[in-house]
Design a protein around this nucleic acid. Sequence first.
RNA 1: GGAGAGGUGGCCGAGUGGUCGAAGGCGCGCGCUUGGAAAGCGCGUACUCGGGAGACCGGGUCGCAGGUUCGAAUCCUGUCCUCUCCGCCA
Length: 427
Amino acid sequence: MLDLAWIRENPDAVREGAEKKGIPFDVDELLRLDEERRQLIRVQEQAKAEQNALGKQVATLSGDSKQQALGRLKQLKAKVQEHTEGLRPLKERIEELMLACPNPPADEVPVGPDESANKLLREVGEKPTYDFEPKDHVALMTGLGMLDIERAGKLAGSRSYVLKGDGVFLEQAILRMAMDLIHERGYTLTSVPVIVKEWALRGTAYFPGAEVQTYRIANPTAEDEDSWLVGTSEVSVTALHSGEILDEAELPIKYAGLSPCFRREAGTYGKDTRGIYRVHQFNKVEQVIVDVGDVEKSRANHEEILDNAETMMQKLELPYRVVICSTGDMGRGARCKYDIEAWMPGRDAYGETHSATRFHEYQARRLNLRYRDSDGKVRFCHTLNNTVIASTRAMIALLEVHQQAGGSVRIPEALKPYMGGRETLSV
RNA sequence: GGAGAGGUGGCCGAGUGGUCGAAGGCGCGCGCUUGGAAAGCGCGUACUCGGGAGACCGGGUCGCAGGUUCGAAUCCUGUCCUCUCCGCCA
């Protein structure tokens, strides 16, 4: 969410930002309603002020003058009520528009309609070559007794999987390695709720918009208090301090969240159907930074969380590239987004493994997440997040890249300690 | 699952339907005091919206949403959350 006062002063910046992102947004409607609203508020508050002043006198009056005052108060009450009712639809629509209003992209973001306009920043590592016919992760994992997709389908439907044996150890090893790395870099590990209230999803800017992608858990006693399964611990971790006024000395807050992630993957029928690339449930270590409202600091933090993820990839000896997402591929809330894509031989293509986003105040305003600066002024925080490692996609890249003739897989040096010192995965 | 208690400022904690944005305390800030500090004393310490260049003026906020009333922190309803006891149980 943006600052309405800022929008009033910079309608063109908002308009241009929405256009660049390809998100239809009517700034003029918002400004018109805002003007109307403020007009009404003025009138309403006048009546309210008279009501309050006269109301205070009522207690001291008696007889005729009291009756007279009460009569006038009834009138005022009706008037205030009328204005309040006139205000309600205005406020609702303004709120709706404010939640939908996209964050204008940063200057360095390439303008384009979709991911085809993403700009390559760098490629790191060598794509592997094989003197044998390489297998994809499904063949590898099945061969190694690590995966059962068929029975998972019976049990839970499509886009489900069962990890077995070394598959479980490998997943845990990768996650643990990520936890150790991010902990060494000064982040506080958290294990957070994955079942959350709707406001947390609205606050992190997933809602409105991602409702169909999100699993809903009904609350039979209160329909508007349903809970939802998060698609990433970013939601829970970022919302953790919502409503608080933090001390500037506490910032930056650096968290890492370990959690399962749930995604309905509605509207992706027929897309990425093979294997465990696109699934309803996986595990992830996510990094979140909450810091002061300073653009340069946000930029530095963005580089930091990107570097954390790149280090993880390098330790796993995975070739990858970093792209800066174009305006059409970054979503409504982001100011700027970098993706890391790992080379996946089974796809003969890069596949997204990390998404590093900086939001400036966009999430913080929705979450009412603030801090008191050194001048004692209350300001909104800046938030950022990035994956450290996501279990399934990391395993795909790792197994496919490090496979050897015969279907065994070499375990990269840095991961060995987490796999009991083993050199390879083999039958 | 059953029974009960409670949600008030950064924290603790008062609060009779009407000068309550809220006593008192802690904490914090400034000042006095002191050789310096502690103690003591004095003063100041929520957020937000609208108007205004500003001093300031006005509205709102006592978990949240409604309701009663001229007027609600206070009464009523719903809901969320916390705590206690009983039951059940990984």
